[in-house]
């Protein structure tokens, strides 16, 4: 018995190192997708390019879609535009943009100016590809907060009933789409379009 006691520190350490090893190959900043299974939060926001048009959760229902939180200020978002355009054209994925506006810094004379922003967005989309059916403008980032968005880019798969089915933090590339998102999207797309 006494002899066994002296092996306790060794056993504890070996157990711990198993976790350390597995921890080496996972991202410590990954968060849980708590929105999955919940309906889209209520909102009423203007269209980025056509502010007269207002979008609500009900207006988006009917067909599953990929909601992409992005902004022209974010290089990763711009980089993934190409692949998402490909997804739209080749697989018919319905992609809706949620435009994440950065707060303005008056120290550098920044003021929110919609026409300027629209022009910037148009240039970027022309340059990298335009995957979007349309873009929702989230100037106060209220919808983003309700969706648990912490930055850009982030992606949600929303089904035809407006229920969030997947939440991916970070960019979409062929690997991410294949391993993580394609199956979810197809499952719900298949359901609504037999």
């Amino acid at each position: 018995m006494r002899k066994v006691l002296f092996y306790v520190p060794l056993v504890l350490f070996l157990g711990l190192s198993l976790f350390l090893l597995s921890g080496l190959f996972s991202d410590p900043r990954e968060r849980d997708a708590v929105m999955v299974g919940k309906p889209l939060p209520a909102f009423s926001l203007p269209d980025l390019m056509n502010p007269a048009q207002t979008w609500t959760p009900d207006a988006l229902k009917g067909q599953p879609f990929l909601l992409n939180v992005w902004g022209v200020w974010c290089p990763t978002c711009n980089a993934e535009l190409g692949y998402m355009t490909q997804l739209r054209n080749e697989q018919g994925v319905r992609i809706i943009g949620l435009y994440y506006v950065l707060p303005e810094d008056p120290m550098f004379g920044q003021v929110f100016n919609l026409p300027v922003l629209q022009a910037e967005v148009a240039t970027k989309l022309q340059q990298f590809g335009d995957p979007y059916q349309f873009n929702i403008l989230d100037q106060q980032r209220r919808l983003s907060l309700d969706l648990g968005v912490s930055g850009a880019p982030e992606h949600f798969i929303v089904d035809a009933e407006g229920i969030v089915r997947a939440h991916h933090i970070g960019d979409i590339n062929p690997q991410v789409w294949r391993t993580k998102l394609a199956a979810v999207y197809q499952q719900f797309a298949g359901g609504s379009q037999p």
Binding site: L5, F6, P9, L10, L14, S17, L24
Partner: peptide
């Protein structure tokens, strides 16, 4: 950098694991 992590973890296993093994076998 996971590669560095693996090196350090192996080093930890040798130094800490080895010393605790020596401890358990000698100290009782």
């Amino acid at each position: 950098d996971p590669e560095r992590g693996v090196f350090l973890l192996i080093f930890l296993l040798i130094v800490i694991g080895g010393s605790l093994l020596l401890y358990a076998s000698r100290m009782h």
